[in-house]
Nucleic acid binder design. Structure first.
Lengths: 214, 214
DNA sequence: TGAAAAATTGACCGGTTGGTAAAGATTACA
DNA sequence: TGTAATCTTTACCAACCGGTCAATTTTTCA
């Protein structure tokens, strides 16, 4: 009789338990979505990971899509922060280098978020077409900045878009393809030090490749 | 009564229809697995893509795993060919540049294979642990070659393993993240010319980054 | 403390999925 | 041509999956 949908209660403020449980669930969902993709993840798995029953989980999030959507939204917010921080007034090569460093740190510290995103893009981004348009706007803006740097002779004459792609690709690779990276590096080199090696290498690669001397 | 399992018939050679149908099915399976991942793909989808009924498909491949396994095996065979071709006797920078070009061509011509592999790695490579070990051996071998080139002053002093990772990442990015690449480039630049632009950029990046002058 | 609100659970439901059984249609070939 | 092997289809099943319901337990707070 009584419609008991506290999650959707419009004007009602959230309980302490609500806030805690929602965080717990989102963490579990991130783990499972990142590991199996949207279709491959089951609500039961997420519930078990969160240590609760399926109906209990569904009491907080009415369905799978909403959990996924919330994770994607939250992800994009923090994920694009390094690119937003690219400072048009800064020293070009320094800006690019710290962008690369920050992106690599994110791959190290938030691999699940990276894989969540990769899963979604890989399967054609069916649920985030709008967000990709926003991403395009940000990239357009930053590509212009990079273009101006090039005009001023501060960087080699490269395509700014493909430059950004190559930064994304090389840094996120260490999160998305972690299993492959660790297997290939072998047990001795696949400790956390691999990120320092990667940072050193990428710095060499991009400094060499983007220096305007050529 | 009679066990009718012609696919598994040991010593019997394959029918013409068998060969045709198996190829048809594997093509359909590649399409669906690449788009949805192993778990996300359904036998019904694959059967429909192949234009036949599900039981008919299962007459040729007894289950989903076997189709997937066969695709992965076939994929790795051709996928690693460019790396195998890296010639220890060739001119180092030229060898690397053609390796990059070949990998980029594969991303352009076989994007489904790339996505199939990416899906598998992304989800922890549960079904191809053995194959990854073989991959490691090949990379170990080629890393030594690259190491010798560096010792001889033919390449900048970079980590060969991370160098290979960066080549994989930047080239496969154009297959795996195609949706994102096309959205960001916009309708005008996302034609097939994007691969030529990518080739030009990657050539600049790696030639600059790997030149031994520094 | 007590009662209302919030949180949790077990039982259940309709649809999907991987896979099977068995009978019918087609093809190869002696 | 006849028939045995191969191929295809219809009907089906058990397990799983997303989600609901109603009842129970726990928490909040007047």
């Amino acid at each position: 009789m009584a419609v008991a949908v506290p999650r959707a209660a419009k004007t009602q403020r959230r309980t302490r338990i609500q806030a805690e449980r929602e965080e717990l669930i989102l963490g579990a969902a991130l783990e499972v979505f990142a590991a199996h993709g949207f279709r491959g993840a089951t609500i039961d798995q997420i519930a078990e990971q969160a240590g609760m029953s399926k109906p209990n989980l569904l009491y907080y999030f009415p369905n799978k899509e909403i959990m996924h959507r919330m994770l994607i939204d939250r992800l994009l917010e923090t994920w694009l922060e390094p690119l937003r921080k690219l400072d048009p007034e800064g020293e070009p090569l320094t800006e690019i280098r710290s962008y690369i460093r920050r992106k690599l740190e994110m791959a190290r510290d938030y691999p699940r978020e990276s894989r969540l995103f990769a899963n979604e893009i890989l399967q054609g981004a069916p649920r985030i077409a709008d967000e990709l348009e926003d991403l395009k706007k940000l990239v357009d803006e930053k590509a212009k900045v990079i273009g101006r740097w090039i005009e001023r002779g501060k960087l080699a004459r490269v395509d700014p878009y493909h430059m950004i792609f190559s930064i994304w690709a090389t840094t996120q690779h260490y999160a998305d393809f972690d299993v492959q990276v660790c297997t290939v590096l072998g047990p001795k080199r696949s400790g956390e030090g691999r990120f320092e090696d990667a940072a050193r290498y990428l710095d060499q690669l991009f400094v060499g490749g983007l220096n305007p001397k050529a």
